[in-house]
């Protein structure tokens, strides 16, 4: 039982930030696609903006690792 709860905790720790990252990236991505049509030179900035929310899922991954470890 305890092991199952640990696994569930780890899954939530990585799963919820993953959803949050996906949601944030979808918003940034669609806005970015619109911006790129107008100004293609912003592609570098857009890669950076889209990549920023990934930190959330990475931190979630660390927490999950700590929970399991």
């Amino acid at each position: 039982m305890e092991q199952a709860l640990i696994a569930l905790g780890a899954a939530i720790a990585v799963g919820v930030p993953a959803l949050a990252t996906g949601w944030a990236q979808s918003k940034i991505g669609s806005a970015g696609a619109g911006a790129l049509v107008e100004k293609p030179e912003l592609s570098g900035v857009m890669i950076i903006l889209v990549a920023i929310p990934e930190t959330m899922v990475l931190l979630g991954f660390v927490v999950a690792y700590l929970i399991i470890g």
Binding site: E54, T55, F61
Partner: peptide
């Protein structure tokens, strides 16, 4: 945050 971000290499 930047340093932690390098964990993506491992992930």
């Amino acid at each position: 945050g930047n340093i932690l971000s390098y964990m993506r290499i491992m992930a």
